[in-house]
């Protein structure tokens, strides 16, 4: 199914779609663009190449309550909280959608599967959006991602000549376009292809990198690479493929909730044990964990590097300790670059 809508008509589309449930869009929030639920008056920004934080928030929310408890005397009542509702994620770029596939592998494919994630994933209709002009920070090409197409999308959208072209690729996608009804016009005549987009050549050579790294846990390279790390969690929180979480209670002995929320392997407390022992006590161990996870552990289990080249860590790390720097330091560079 192919449909089109004029760009200036989009607010009407947002309104109609949002009436049925949360509609996540890249929204201009002051100086930054964030993937957030749209509401009347919110300023959608489809021109932003990448949101400051990835779209993973839709599938793996930064905070998700799944249990309510009530306590009285000896009694403890545990009540499951259901909060997954049909959601539309509009404007997910190919890199972010590829990252969701990587989360799928962890949360769905690997036993036991995660029901909270599954529900959200299944109830979310994804409208992918092709990239028109890459940012200097983008390097998704290095991972074989085509910025012009997001294969996992339910609807693929392209911005073209003042129009938005929408192509439904799944039943969910069709249902979404149907839902929009008259706001959309038939687009069977339009050419549904985005112009070819190339991201900058960073000169990475990822061939065999995961295998090579298996032997490099104790490599001296780690003694240098970590040094500039401040130990904050920016990289992990903006990263679309990071998925670590924490579980915490909020409330008092009478009643409250239990939620899971994002956590970061860059924090010392992440692995701190009750008795005081910490297997990853230093910044070096933690930096190694993060890069090894992306470049070796994840690939070992799932056969691909856990990076989609979205460039957020390149943009956001306060000290420019990004994955490109790490890959190069670990030998993942083309010969010419070296």
């Amino acid at each position: 199914m192919k449909k089109v809508i004029a760009r200036e008509k989009l607010p009407e589309l947002w309104k109609s779609l949002a009436a049925k449930g949360p509609l996540f869009l890249p929204i201009q929030e002051g100086p930054v663009v964030l993937f957030q639920p749209w509401s009347e008056g919110a300023e959608a920004n489809l021109d932003a190449v990448n949101t400051a934080v990835s779209a993973k928030d839709v599938f793996l929310p930064r905070e998700e309550t799944y249990l309510q408890y009530r306590c009285s005397g000896n009694q403890l009542e545990l009540i499951p909280v259901e909060n997954a509702e049909p959601v539309i994620a509009f404007g997910v770029h190919p890199c972010d959608l590829k990252a969701v596939e990587m989360l799928d592998k962890v949360y769905l494919d690997q036993e036991p599967s995660d029901e909270l994630y599954r529900q959200r994933r299944e109830k979310t209709t994804v409208v992918g959006l092709s990239c028109r002009e890459p940012d200097p920070f983008c390097f998704c090409n290095e991972f074989g991602i085509n910025p012009a197409d997001a294969p996992g999308a339910d609807v693929m959208a392209h911005l073209k000549n003042g129009l938005v072209l929408l192509e439904a690729r799944t039943d969910k996608g069709k249902a979404l376009l149907d839902q929009a009804g008259d706001l959309l016009q038939d687009g069977s005549d339009e050419k549904f292809e985005a112009a070819e987009v190339k991201t900058a050549d960073f000169g990475l050579n990822l061939e065999g990198l995961p295998e090579n790294l298996k032997e490099r846990f104790e490599d001296p390279v780690w003694d240098e690479l970590y040094k500039s790390c401040l130990g904050c969690g920016v990289c992990t929180y903006v990263c679309p493929t990071c998925y670590c979480f924490d579980v915490e209670d909020f409330g008092h002995e009478g009643e409250g909730q239990r939620f899971r929320c994002w956590d970061s392997c860059m924090y010392g407390h992440f692995t701190d044990m009750a008795g005081g022992h910490n297997p990853r006590a230093g910044r070096k161990e933690r930096v190694r964990q993060r890069f090894m996870h992306k470049l070796q552990y994840y690939p070992e289990t799932f056969n691909e590097i856990a990076c989609v080249g979205c460039g957020r860590c390149l943009r956001s790390c306060p000290v420019n300790l990004d994955i490109v720097q790490a890959i190069k330091a670990l030998g993942g560079e083309t010969v010419e670059q070296r």
Binding site: V106, Q110, P112, D114, F245, V247, C265, A274
Partner: peptide
Amino acid sequence: EMRMKCGVGKCGR
């Protein structure tokens, strides 16, 4: 012994 939160190999600790 390790710090654990999920018990199912996902939380990353």
